[in-house]
């Protein structure tokens, strides 16, 4: 317990293990964020809301391994597509670093659990049973980060989530945008000291 407290004190005080994020040093950063993802369907007129977040680890200054989890909370406007939808995915991103600023892009693969929405007024659709489907998802990410300090960063990103319609021979693409504050820990530096 004492060790844990000492470790926490070391992490959050002083610059003994500081990472030079202002010079573009990224290796070892463990990043976590949570945010709201307004999402726009590219195939149908439907704007949805997701909440979720990501966890990422910088393998070196250029590449990071990353995992995301998202869950649909509501439909903003337009036709509802899903009763519910949740997604877990992972992949790699590539950074291009300019001092404190990063532009990043990457791809992720994952699995989405979904239940399609049935219009209560549609006799045909309501004749169909409600299944929960698990569909593979492929997505591309593009975004930026600004490292405010070694512990915090601002970011914005967009993701194109692609999955097959589970009850039709078609692709569904949803564009999700998000941003906000992320928290990061310089783990590599800490472990090396």
């Amino acid at each position: 317990m004492v060790k844990v407290l000492l470790l926490a004190a070391c992490v959050f005080t002083g610059n003994l293990w500081s990472q030079n994020v202002e010079t573009g040093e990224r290796q070892g950063l463990l990043e976590v964020s949570g945010s709201i993802y307004p999402t726009f369907s590219m195939n149908r007129k439907s704007n949805m809301n997701f909440v979720g977040g990501h966890l990422a680890y910088q393998l070196d200054d250029k590449y990071s391994f990353r995992g995301d989890a998202l869950i649909m909370t509501s439909t903003q406007s337009g036709a509802q597509i899903y009763n519910d939808y949740f997604l877990i995915e992972s992949g790699f991103t590539r950074n291009v670093t300019f001092k404190r600023f990063d532009i990043f892009g990457g791809i992720e693969f994952g699995l989405a659990g979904m239940q399609l929405y049935r219009d209560p007024n549609s006799v045909t659709l309501n004749a169909q049973p409600l299944h929960r489907y698990y569909q593979p998802v492929w997505d591309g990410i593009l975004g930026f980060k600004f490292h405010v300090s070694q512990y915090f960063y601002f970011y914005g990103e967009m993701k194109a989530l692609n999955n097959r319609n589970p009850e039709a021979n078609s692709l569904q693409t949803n564009l999700a945008v998000t941003g906000g504050l992320g928290i990061q820990l310089p783990t590599k530096k800490l472990l090396n000291k």
């Binding site: 699995l111 593979p136 009850e167 021979n169």
Partner: peptide, 8 residues
């Protein structure tokens, strides 16, 4: 590999 596919 898991490969789902659907039509109507």
């Amino acid at each position: 590999d898991y490969l789902p596919s659907s039509n109507n």
